[in-house]
Design a protein around this nucleic acid. Structure first.
Lengths: 192, 192
DNA sequence: AGGAACACTTAACCTAGGTTAAGAAATACA
DNA sequence: TGTATTTCTTAACCTAGGTTAAGTGTTCCT
């Protein structure tokens, strides 16, 4: 069965016609690893629902350091939220980590969908609510915990993902340099 | 005119009956400064729309350190989002900073509102979207910038609020100790 | 008005994590 | 298959920000 429809069905129930309408407004794409699907300064015209592979959203700060905003694996959405919502040039990149298949939903089609299938507005509201809660938690974690504890949380939360990610991206997500991450990992190993 | 209705009107337009329905589902309350309206471990049954005063949402970590999640002044909503959305015991406090007047909206009434006035689902979707974007930006800022730069951003963003907040709360919001904040401020003064 | 309870400051000292740099391992790619 | 590029490791050294502690305002409460 279709991963997108499954994921929608977890939060709202659509008629067969509504399901078809949803799918008709999306567009399927495939990308090779390392494809950059959105660059800093571009406007994020579509959001991406991942059906295969892994994508990531990150910023590059004024010292050239990369900071991962989010990873997306199958069943997850990804976009530069600021740019997508405002339809103004964004400040982040979206890059394909591993050969991927995605469904594209353009901003216009999303608005259409809200008008035609109100349940989809509920669906996205719930998704965004969950993102917000996760994001607030991550912010508090960054202020409350040491890098080691954050890594521990990350490992548990993204257990499936963790072995598919280069260490430097994990380091960047939890907010430390790759060098420190490497040192920390060695310390953890030595302890047991 | 009513601050809540004004704020709604910025995003969706309601009929007079709809406006009345919204108001009929909220409940007005007054609180003195220092009132704790939600404690860690309690379930956040209502969200608060501030019409007067200032409230703040914060967590206390395992070392007893306070971390401010958000401030709310007139025209803003505040809640323990995790607890409010899941209706499970939360991990944060909501406290009245300055004598306040608020409108309470219970979770049940919010759901009622979504069913009766679909435009309100849009309204809250947009609000949550904006929160998410602001929160993602704050997270990235914490990883990209020094405490000084974060303070600078905070001062600009909350220019109106900043003189009503004790320094320790600003320190806690930007993610430093009150002692370091004090040192930093002295340094900034000395520089010009 | 007087004192308990906070809020802020300062200063000496400490540490988690950053920086630089150089080498080793792994991947990509021709 | 070899070489170029990227990732990872290690180690010496550095610094932003934390900790502790003691003193000085403030506020608030009776």
């Amino acid at each position: 069965m279709n991963l997108l429809l499954e994921s929608i069905a977890k939060h709202v129930s659509l008629s067969t016609e509504e399901q078809e309408r949803v799918l008709s407004l999306t567009e399927s794409r495939q990308y090779n690893a390392k494809t950059i699907v959105l660059k800093e300064g571009e406007t994020c015209t579509h959001s991406f629902f991942v059906t295969k592979g892994i994508l990531r959203n990150y910023t590059i700060d004024e010292n050239g350091m990369e900071h991962v905003v989010s990873f997306a694996c199958p069943g997850w959405w990804i976009a530069d939220m600021y740019s997508y919502l405002t339809q103004r040039p964004g400040h982040s990149f979206i890059e394909v980590n591993e050969e991927a298949e995605v469904l594209l939903l353009s901003k216009e089609n999303q608005e259409l969908l809200y008008a035609e299938v109100p349940k989809m507005e509920r669906f996205f509201r719930i998704l965004i609510e969950n993102s917000l809660v996760a994001n607030q938690q991550r912010l508090i974690d960054n202020m409350s915990f040491t890098a080691e504890a954050r890594y521990d949380k990350f490992s548990k939360k993204y257990a499936g993902l963790i072995h598919s990610l280069p260490q430097k991206q994990i380091a960047s997500y939890i907010g430390v340099t790759p060098e420190f991450f490497s040192k920390m990992k060695a310390r953890l190993l030595k302890r047991h």
